Simulated scan of single mutants.
Amino acid sequence: MPTLTRRAMICSAACGFAAPAALGQSSAFAAAAARARQMDQLHSLTIVQDGRTVIEDVRRGPSAATPVNVKSVSKSVVSALTGAAIDRGHLPGLGATLGDLAPGLIPPGADPRVTAITVENLLTLQAGLERTSGRNYGAWVNSGNWVAYALSREMVAEPGAVMLYSTGTTHVMGAVLTEVTGRSLLSLARDWLGDPLDIDVPSWARDPQGYYLGGNEMALSPRALARFGEMYRLGGRWQGRQVLPAAWVRDSFTARTRSRWSGLGYGLGWFLGEADGTAYALARGYGGQVVAVVPDRALTVVITSDPTRPARSEGYFGDLQALLERDIIPSAPRA
């Protein structure tokens, strides 16, 4: 499975986040932008090349500075917060188990193997529990205790054996972060990501016990998403500050499993693919919300889309993946 290489990049003044001239019409990405405009689900396309915004094209929806629902891109945010928690000593590492970290979250009657589920299992969606996404999502969010419901599902695989895409799994990770730090996921996101990146992190949905939903429904603007992606591209740094450990970024971009739907690898909250001989990492949300990080091309791409319409691998998301792999990545020179 591919691993994205780390490159030491230096961000240019203000990291190029001033409004781009003429929306990059003279850039190598103009043709890709024109093709993106033909997609009726797409709301905005942002391309940051070598620290400079070369495309910022908002076709529908609010401005590039307005937070929008990023759906399951939230899973990559929860992963980032987990890396920050490990760096700060709140978690001992990826091998720490639910039984050690937050035994009070485990409901009576849960499969005994639940206690051995690790942080790594949660972030890689390999908890082994029956999924709470897809057709099971409604029953889960209508339950009286989202954490207990997720952890009381049938164990359909051994922990660490297979990827089972499930928002409930990432929600459990978010609840663990709250338990070990004594702080809400919102507070952590604002402190550990919002402040150093200078981005707005609005409040979002909470479960009946008050835990902020981990893995869905967060809102970030396209410009905030671009800074989040650029921070990862730069090995966890932003404007001279180490926001996340470089080793965490490398681990996040190392595939540990694979999606049976898209065929993409999956690391710590990031899908992983390859195009034009270059590895890339992808945060992906329902409807076609995308943050793509391509370190070897000094490239970050953000796409926001209609969050109410599906984006399946054989449909709209497949179109977005083709846009990225065939049009955008090959247009960027190797860094």
Rank of each mutant, 00 (worst) to 15 (best):
L123Q: 05
V78K: 01
G287T: 09
G265D: 08
G99M: 04
G174P: 06
V249D: 03
A283Y: 07
G318R: 04
P20L: 05
N136H: 07
S305H: 02
P245V: 13
L185D: 00
C11F: 15
W146S: 02
R59P: 13
M231S: 03
K71N: 14
G318T: 07
L164F: 14
A36S: 12
L234Y: 14
D319P: 12
A110G: 09
I303S: 02
D251S: 07
G128Q: 01
P330S: 10
V249G: 01
I106D: 02
V70S: 05
K75L: 00
T115C: 09
E179V: 10
V114Q: 01
G288S: 04
G214L: 04
T118L: 06
L151W: 04
P107I: 02
R6A: 13
T170S: 07
T308M: 15
S259D: 09
T53V: 11
R37D: 15
A13C: 15
T169Y: 00
Q289P: 02
Q289E: 05
L213K: 11
A36G: 09
L45M: 03
V293K: 02
V302K: 00
S331Q: 09
C11Q: 13
G267R: 02
P62Q: 15
T5F: 10
F228Q: 00
V180P: 01
S26P: 12
Y286D: 03
S313Y: 11
G265C: 07
A157R: 08
E314P: 07
E179M: 11
G182V: 07
N121M: 09
L264E: 10
F228L: 07
Q41F: 03
N136S: 14
R256E: 09
R309P: 15
H171K: 04
G265T: 00
E325L: 08
A335K: 03
I86R: 05
S133G: 08
A292Y: 02
A8L: 12
Y149V: 02
P310E: 03
G269E: 02
A18C: 15
S331A: 11
G229C: 03
D198R: 12
L324W: 07
N121H: 12
L234C: 10
W248I: 07
G134K: 07
A31T: 14
D40G: 04
L264A: 09
S184C: 14
W261V: 09
